[in-house]
Design a protein around this nucleic acid. Structure first.
Length: 1092
RNA sequence: GGGCCUGUAGCUCAGUUGGUUAGAGCGCGACACUGAUAAUGUCGAGGUCCGUGGUUCGACUCCACGCAGGCCCA
C-alpha cells in the first residue's frame, strides 16, 4: 500500500527518522558499508562547549555534513570523529567571572589545581546542548568517542609535536610587547584592556623632536611622540614608503639656528603656516611666541628615498647590539597625526618590535648575567641607573606621589636645551589604564616562546598553492597574503588552563630541555630522583595529569646537576586544535596506520573567522613538521547575520535559537534554507519568513507531488516495475526522464565543485517547475483515468523514478525528508546507504528538452492571448497559428500544447507567406569583431529594409550592403518572425504565435459541456464524495442548452463517474446553481452504492 | 591604515568567454483555473545594475579611482 502522510510536517517526521536511525544504527551502517572503499578524510574542527550552540553552527555543520554524506553515497569511507576544544582564555575568563576571581588570585586565593578543575568542568557545560544539536540537525559525526584536547594522551601528542619544533630550532624564547601595569606589577591581557572604562582621556606632552642625519650637517628628521620617556630607547625611525616627503629649509624654533628638516608633505600645515613660505628666510622672522617660522620647501621626494638612511640617536646611554638608528619602511605609519616619521622603540611598542625584528634592528636595552633583556625602564616603571640623566625616575606617577614631576617634561626640556626639540604641545587622547590600579599601562617586553613561522614562509606559500580553496579568493588573498608575511607565532600564554609548555630550564638559562613524551619525562624524573631533586615520580600514577600545577612540581636535573624548572607558560590554544590531525589518534604513540590513512584531510569546512585560526595552525604544523598540507580542500563559510544584515549578538537580542527553529520548521528546512539562499562564503542574512517560504514552496511542492503519487498509486494498487523501454514511453515521460538525468548530471557537478547552493537550486527548480508544475499538471488525467493500462503504469513508474532520484540527490542537504521519501517510495534500507546515482546519458534527449521548453513558452503565450480575448480556458478554440519552421520540434508535442490551452488544432504557416513579418538584426557576437564600428550602420540598414527585401536576404543568405557583397555565414543574422498580422498574436524570446478565436456552434456546445462538467465536479466535492465514488445524476437546464448538451452525455458521465445520467424535463425541487453565470442549473446528485 | 569579500526590483538572489529588450522567487494589485486545492496559471506595477572616469563598434560584465556594508588584521 502507498501511504498518504498527510500535510507536510517536517518536525514530526524528522523525529521518526531520528528514532529509526538510532534504532537501526544507520550512521554506523552507512560507514561500515563503505569500509574498504576509497578513503575520504574529513576533519571536524573542534568546537568549544563552554557556550551554547547557535544558528551559525548549524550553517557550518550543514556544509560539513552534506559533503560527508555525499562522499559516503559516492562510495567513500568517511570517518567522522567529533572533537572538543577545551582549553583557552574564554574558558578561564568565564570561570574567573563566576568565581569572582582575577588572574592575580589564581595560585593565591585559589589553588591552581582547584581553578583548573573548575575550568575543566566549565568547558563541557553545554556539551549536552551541543550533542543534542548535532543529533537533531542530522549532523552525522561520531559522538561516542570524541577527541578531547585536555586528555593526557592528546597532550602527549602535542608535546611530541612541540619537541619536533624544538629540535628543528623552530621553537625559541624571545620577548614580546604586552600591556603591563607597573603599579600592579603584572601583565594584562588584551581582554583586560577591553574592560569598560579602561580607556580614558589623558593629557600627555606631545613633542616633535629632531633626529640628526649622520652625514648631512644641519639635516634633521622630525618625529612626533606622545611618550617622550621612550626616546632613550629609540632604535629606528619609520616612514611610509609611498608617502611624499619634503625637505624644508627653516630655523630651529628655540635657537633660531638655520636647519633643514624632513617631514611628510601632508604634515606640513601642522608645523608651518602658509605665510611662512613668503617671509624672508631670516632668523629675525622666527616668532618664538606663536611658533611662526619662515621656510622654503627645497625638495619633494618619495618615502622610499629615506629608507636606509642613518641618524644620530638623541640619547646614547647604551650601545646597541647591532645596527640601530636607521630609517625603515613601516606599514603602520599614518599621515593623520605627527610628521609622517614615526619613532620606534622596540622595547615599548608592539608595532615597533615587529618592524624592528623584520629589519634586524636591535632593541636599545641591557642584558642581565643570563642574557635576559633589560629594558631601560624597569618593572616598577623607573628608569634604570644607566639612563644617567633620569635614573630612578618613574615614567608616570605610579606611586601617587604628590610631588611627582613628570619625567616627560624634563626630557623635553633636556632636548630643548640641546636644540633638538622642534615643538612641544599637550595632547589629549584615550589611553588604556590598569583596571585595578587606575594607572596608565605600559607596553612592556615580556618573555615568550615563539614558533619561527617566518622561516617557513616559502614552504607555507608553496604548499598553500596546492590547497583548493572555496572560494579561491580566500586562499589567494586573505590567507595567502597572511602566510606570505607571517610573523613568528607567539606560542606561550601566562595562563593556567592550557597545555603546559614541556620545557624545563635552569634558573640561569644555561641548560634547557624539551620533553616529547611521558616516557621521556618519566625517565628524566627518575634521574632527578637519583640526584635527590625529586622524591617521587608523579608519572608512576596511572592517571597522571600533565596540566598545571602538577607538571610545575616536576624538577629535572641539568647535565651539571643543577635543577631545571618548567617554563611556567601554557601554550596558545590554537596549537591544540592545529595539532588535531595527530593528537586525535595519539600519534605517534599509537595508531600509526590509522593516522597515515587519515592524513592529510581531503576536506575541512569552517567559518571565515578561522582563516588566521584553525586554517592557519593546521597549515603551519603540517608544513613545518610533515612537509605536507593538513587539508587538500577547504570550504569557507560566511557569517549568519540577521535579516537587516547585523551581526547576531545577545546585546541586540537578534540571536536565533536553532532548536526553536528546528522544532517549528524542521532541521531539513533550516538546512535547505541556509544552503540554497546564498553561496556558503557569502554572509547569510537570516530571515525566518524566507525559511517558512522555503518550506512551503519547495518541501510543500515536493510533498504534494509525493502525495499525488501515493494517492493514485494506492487506489490502483500500483506495483513497482522497471522503467519500460524508452520507445514505449510518451513524450512527456521521455522528457521528464531526460530532465531527471540532466539534473543528476548538474547536481553531481555542483557537489563535486563544492557548490551545494547550486545543487539545491537545481533541485528546487526541477521539483517545482519541471516535475510538479509541468509533468504532473500535464499528466494528471493519466493517473485518474479508469483503465489500468500500460500507459497508466508507465506514468506511475516514471513519476516514482523521478521522486526516488530526487530523494537521492537531495539526501546530502535534506537528509530527513529524503529518507521519508525513500522509505515511502519503498526503496530498501536508508537513502544514505544507497549509491549516489550516476546520470544515465542514454535517457538524455537535449532536443526534446529544448522543444519542451519552447512548448511551455508557447503555452504561456497562448494563455496570455486567451486572457486578452476574454474567453475562458474551458471554452475550446479552433486553432493556433505558428510559423512552419516550428513544425520539426513542435509536432510531437502539439497534443500537449493543444490540451494545455484547449485548442482543436495547430496550423503551420508558411514562412514566406504574407501572414508573417520578419525582423532581422545582425548577430553582434559574430559580426561585431568583423565589422567593428560599421555594425551600427548595418543594423540601421537592416531596419530600413522592406519585408520583401528581408525575405530575399533570408532566402539567398547574402546581403549587398554599401556596394559590397557581404557574404553571410549561417548565424550572422538573427531572423525573428515578428508577428502574424490580422490575428491575435504574441511574441517573446524569438517565439511567435497567433490565436484564432472564432467559435463554431460545435465548439460553443463543447464549451458548455466543459462548463457543466466543471460544475458537476464541484458539486461532487461539495456533496462530500470521494474521488472514486460513483454517482447517479439527474440534471435540468433551460433550452437550447439542455438539448445541445445531451449529445455530450457519455463524456459527462465518464468524467463525473456517473453510472446513470438523466435529463429532467422539469426542474426538480432543488436550489439551482448558476450556469455560465446567468442560467439556472438543477443538479440532483446521489452516491451509487456498489452491489456486493 | 592594510588585506579580502559584497553592492542588480520593496526583500532574497541569478546573470555564461563583454553582444544591444537585465531575469527568477517572494511580497503587492487584478483576473482566471481547479479530481494535487493551505496547490496552480495569466496579466500588471516595480531597475540611474552603488558612483565617476576609462577601454571597446558595444560594459551589469573588463580596468582605474571613489562611496557604502561586512569580515580579518593592525
Amino acid at each position: 500500500m502507498w501511504r498518504s502522510l498527510g500535510p507536510l510536517n517536517l518536525p514530526q517526521w524528522e523525529q521518526e527518522v531520528l528514532a529509526r536511525w538510532r534504532a537501526e544504527k544507520t550512521f554506523q551502517r552507512s560507514l561500515a558499508q563503505r569500509k574498504g572503499g576509497p578513503t575520504f578524510v574529513f576533519y571536524e574542527g573542534p568546537p568549544s562547549a563552554n557556550g551554547k550552540p547557535g544558528i551559525h553552527h548549524v550553517f557550518a555543520r550543514t556544509l560539513k555534513d552534506l559533503v560527508c554524506r555525499y562522499q559516503t553515497m559516492r562510495g567513500a569511507y568517511v570517518l567522522r570523529r567529533a572533537g572538543w576544544d577545551t582549553h583557552g582564555l574564554p574558558v578561564e575568563l568565564a570561570v574567573e567571572k563566576e568565581l569572582g576571581l582575577t588572574k592575580a588570585d589564581i595560585g593565591t586565593r585559589i589553588a591552581i589545581a582547584d581553578y583548573n578543575r573548575a575550568c575543566k568542568e566549565a568547558v563541557m557545560r553545554y556539551k549536552a546542548a551541543w550533542d543534542e544539536l548535532t543529533e537533531r540537525m542530522g549532523y552525522w559525526v561520531a559522538l561516542d568517542d570524541p577527541y578531547i584536547t585536555f586528555d593526557a594522551q592528546y597532550i602527549e601528542s602535542v608535546w611530541w609535536l612541540l619537541k619536533k619544533f624544538y629540535e628543528k630550532g623552530l621553537l625559541y624564547k624571545d620577548y614580546t610587547i604586552q600591556p603591563y601595569s607597573p603599579a600592579a606589577g603584572t601583565a594584562l591581557s588584551q581582554h583586560e584592556l577591553n574592560l569598560p572604562g579602561a580607556y580614558r582621556p589623558v593629557k600627555d606632552p606631545s613633542i616633535t623632536v629632531q633626529f640628526a642625519d649622520i652625514q648631512e650637517q644641519g639635516l634633521y628628521y622630525l618625529a612626533w611622540t606622545t611618550t617622550p620617556w621612550t626616546l632613550p630607547s629609540n632604535a629606528a625611525l619609520a616612514v611610509g614608503e609611498n608617502f611624499v616627503y619634503v625637505e624644508v629649509e627653516t630655523f630651529q624654533p628655540y635657537t633660531r639656528t638655520p636647519i633643514r628638516v624632513v617631514l611628510a608633505e601632508a604634515a606640513l600645515p601642522r608645523y608651518f603656516t602658509p605665510e611662512g613660505a613668503s617671509l624672508p628666510l631670516s632668523p629675525e622672522e622666527v616668532d618664538l611666541r606663536t611658533g611662526r617660522l619662515p621656510y622654503r620647501i627645497r625638495r619633494r621626494f618619495s618615502g622610499k628615498e629615506l629608507i636606509g638612511r642613518r641618524y644620530e640617536p638623541l640619547f646614547r646611554y647604551v650601545e646597541p647590539e647591532g645596527e640601530a638608528w636607521r630609517i625603515l619602511p613601516g606599514d603602520f605609519v599614518s599621515l593623520e597625526e605627527g610628521t609622517g616619521i614615526v619613532h620606534i622603540a622596540p622595547t615599548f611598542g608592539a608595532d615597533d618590535l615587529r618592524v624592528a625584528r623584520k629589519h634586524g634592528i636591535p632593541p636599545i636595552a641591557l642584558r642581565d648575567a643570563q642574557g635576559h633583556l633589560l629594558p631601560l625602564v624597569d618593572k616598577e616603571g623607573r628608569f634604570v641607573p644607566e639612563v644617567t640623566d633620569f635614573a630612578g625616575r618613574y615614567v608616570k606617577n605610579y606611586k601617587d606621589d604628590p610631588d611627582y614631576k613628570p619625567v616627560d617634561e624634563d626630557i623635553a626640556q633636556h632636548l630643548r636645551q640641546r636644540g633638538l626639540l622642534f615643538r612641544k604641545e599637550t595632547y589629549e587622547h584615550n589611553y588604556p589604564h590598569c583596571w585595578r590600579t587606575d594607572k596608565p599601562i605600559l607596553y612592556y617586553p615580556v618573555e615568550a616562546w615563539f614558533i619561527r613561522v617566518s622561516a617557513l614562509r616559502e614552504k607555507l606559500v608553496a604548499l598553500n598553492k596546492t590547497i583548493q580553496w572555496f572560494p579561491p579568493s580566500i586562499g589567494e588573498g586573505r590567507f595567502g597574503n597572511w602566510i606570505a608575511n607571517a610573523e613568528d607565532w607567539n606560542l606561550s600564554r601566562t595562563r593556567f588552563w592550557g597545555i603546559p609548555l614541556p620545557i624545563w630550564r635552569t634558573r640561569d638559562g644555561r641548560y634547557e630541555r624539551c620533553i616529547g613524551s611521558f616516557a621521556e619525562l618519566h625517565a628524566a624524573v627518575e634521574e632527578a630522583r637519583q640526584a635527590g631533586l625529586m622524591t617521587t615520580n608523579p608519572l608512576d600514577a596511572p592517571d597522571f595529569d600533565p596540566h598545571r600545577p602538577y607538571v610545575d612540581e616536576i624538577i629535572l636535573k641539568a647535565p651539571d646537576g643543577s635543577p631545571m624548572y618548567r617554563e611556567p607558560e601554557v601554550i596558545d590554544v590554537w596549537f591544540d586544535s592545529g595539532a588535531m590531525p595527530y593528537a586525535q589518534w595519539h600519534y605517534p604513540f599509537e595508531n600509526e596506520a590509522l593516522f597515515q590513512s587519515q592524513f592529510p584531510a581531503d576536506f575541512i569546512a569552517e567559518g571565515v573567522d578561522q582563516t588566521r585560526g584553525w586554517f592557519y595552525t593546521l597549515h603551519v604544523i603540517a608544513a613545518a613538521l610533515f612537509d605536507s598540507v593538513a587539508y587538500k580542500r577547504v570550504l569557507v563559510n560566511g557569517l549568519v547575520l540577521d535579516k537587516e544584515g547585523n551581526k547576531m549578538s545577545k546585546r541586540l537580542g537578534n540571536v536565533v535559537d536553532p532548536f526553536a527553529l528546528m522544532e517549528q520548521y524542521g532541521a531539513d528546512a533550516t538546512r535547505w534554507y541556509l544552503v540554497s539562499n546564498a553561496p556558503p562564503w557569502e554572509n547569510v542574512r537570516f530571515d525566518e519568513k524566507r525559511l517558512a517560504e522555503k518550506v512551503r514552496s519547495f518541501f510543500g511542492t515536493l510533498h504534494n507531488t509525493y502525495e499525488f503519487f501515493a494517492l493514485y498509486a494506492g487506489i490502483d494498487g500500483y506495483e513497482i516495475q522497471p522503467l519500460p523501454p524508452i520507445q514505449q514511453l510518451s513524450m512527456t515521460d521521455r522528457w521528464l526522464l531526460s530532465e531527471v538525468e540532466k539534473l543528476t548530471e548538474k547536481v553531481t557537478e555542483a557537489y563535486e565543485g563544492y557548490f551545494p547552493t547550486e545543487a539545491a537550486r537545481l533541485i528546487e527548480d526541477f521539483v517545482i517547475e519541471k516535475l510538479s508544475n509541468w509533468y504532473v499538471r500535464l499528466n494528471r488525467r493519466r493517473f485518474w483515468k479508469g483503465e489500468k493500462d500500460s500507459d497508466k503504469w508507465a506514468a506511475f513508474t516514471v513519476l516514482r523514478y523521478a521522486l526516488v532520484r530526487v530523494a537521492q540527490l537531495m539526501a546530502p542537504i535534506a537528509p530527513f525528508y529524503a529518507e521519508v521519501l525513500w522509505e515511502n517510495l519503498k526503496e530498501k534500507g536508508s537513502v544514505h546507504e544507497s549509491d549516489f546515482p550516476a546520470a544515465d546519458s542514454a535517457l538524455r534527449d537535449p532536443a526534446l528538452e529544448e522543444a519542451m521548453d519552447k512548448t511551455r513558452r508557447l503555452a504561456s503565450l497562448l494563455h496570455s492571448l486567451r486572457k486578452q480575448s476574454g474567453i475562458r480556458v474551458r471554452q475550446p478554440l479552433p486553432q493556433a497559428l505558428v510559423p512552419a519552421s516550428y513544425k520539426s520540434w513542435l509536432e510531437p508535442l502539439a497534443p500537449l500544447l493543444l490540451s494545455e490551452v484547449n485548442l482543436k488544432q495547430l496550423t503551420y504557416i508558411d514562412d514566406h507567406s504574407e501572414a508573417v513579418t520578419y525582423e532581422i538584426r545582425p548577430n553582434y557576437k559574430t559580426l561585431g569583431p568583423r565589422l567593428g564600428a560599421h555594425i551600427q550602420a548595418l543594423a540601421a540598414y537592416l531596419r530600413s529594409l522592406s519585408q520583401e527585401a528581408l525575405l530575399r536576404v533570408i532566402q539567398q543568405g547574402t546581403l549587398v550592403w554599401e556596394g559590397e557583397t557581404l557574404s553571410l555565414a549561417q548565424g550572422d543574422l538573427e531572423v525573428r518572425a515578428r508577428a502574424l498580422p490580422g490575428w491575435l498574436h504574441a511574441s517573446e524570446g524569438g517565439l511567435t504565435v497567433a490565436l484564432d478565436t472564432r467559435l463554431s456552434p460545435e465548439l460553443e456546445h463543447e464549451g458548455w459541456a466543459r462548463e457543466l462538467i466543471h460544475l458537476l465536479q464541484n458539486a461532487r466535492k461539495n456533496a462530500g464524495l470521494a474521488v472514486t465514488d460513483r454517482i447517479h445524476l439527474a440534471l435540468h437546464l433551460p433550452e437550447p442548452y439542455q438539448s445541445a448538451l445531451k449529445a455530450f452525455s457519455p463524456l459527462i458521465a465518464q468524467e463525473t463517474l456517473a453510472e446513470t445520467l438523466t435529463w429532467l424535463e422539469t426542474p426538480p425541487p432543488l436550489e439551482p446553481i448558476s450556469f455560465l453565470d446567468t442560467l439556472p442549473l438543477y443538479i440532483d446528485i446521489s452516491r451509487a452504492y456498489e452491489h456486493a
